[in-house]
Design a protein around this nucleic acid. Structure first.
Lengths: 117, 117
DNA sequence: TTCCAACTTAACCATTGCGTTAAGTTACCT
DNA sequence: AGGTAACTTAACGCAATGGTTAAGTTGGAA
């Protein structure tokens, strides 16, 4: 019972499920290109541990790594997130409808100061 | 080295990383309330296996289960996805420059309701 | 050429994840 | 009361995840 392949969506969501990896992505969002050591420095874990996280992010296509000399530059490649967001978008009505309803209620309340509360 | 807690975002993304669970959510998106057996029927896996997936979805707050008699009704509770989508939205500029891209995407999706995964 | 810095790889370990089968509950129907 | 349907729980197997330490490689500086 071996898992041979997992879809892009699987890998994207799985990659995003770890806070360390989300922090790495957040860092790369602000800084465009960061070396592996610089990425690892803020974390209270070993360099190999961070490397594994970077591997996961690479496999999910969320970062690219380019080696120049002995340092490796990582940069964000957010494209797979688009698919993830597209998947989520389908469910948006389940919370926006509620927000719309709330907004409408507030609006009504504002116009007709009420007996409620 | 014990994992004490995981954030809501962790649990949401982890729950979404499995195709079976995404299919379950997709089913619940269309059907509002479905019994455990009905949910399990289409899948080529045992009922306990599906139950575990439902447990994960419950823990992530993505479904609720209410027992009436001997049957358990599951229904979608998409709220946690809002946070996930909010997290992803930050990276949107990396795949498109247009500010209303999401809206366009949603519009397209609304017009062409798509296949479940 | 020698040394150190920046990774990388390997080996290991504990926990979690995802499936199984088998047995146990509980509620409805005759 | 007995049987079956609808879960639920338990016990297991195996792969993947997320961390460790230790050793290996390779490029730049002295």
């Amino acid at each position: 019972m071996v898992k041979l392949e997992s879809s892009q969506l699987d890998r994207t969501f799985a990659a995003l499920s770890d806070p360390t990896r989300r922090a790495l992505l957040a860092r790369l969002e602000g800084e465009h290109a960061v070396s592996v050591s610089d990425l690892a420095r803020p974390f209270a874990m070993s360099l190999p541990a961070v490397m594994k996280h970077l591997d996961v992010l690479s496999d999910a296509g969320l970062i690219t790594r380019t080696k120049t000399g002995r340092t490796v530059s990582c940069r964000l490649k957010a494209d797979p997130m688009e698919e993830a967001m597209g998947w989520l978008a389908r469910y948006q009505r389940f919370w926006t409808q509620r927000l719309d309803a709330l907004e409408a209620m507030l609006e009504a309340r504002r116009k007709a100061p009420s007996e409620a509360e």
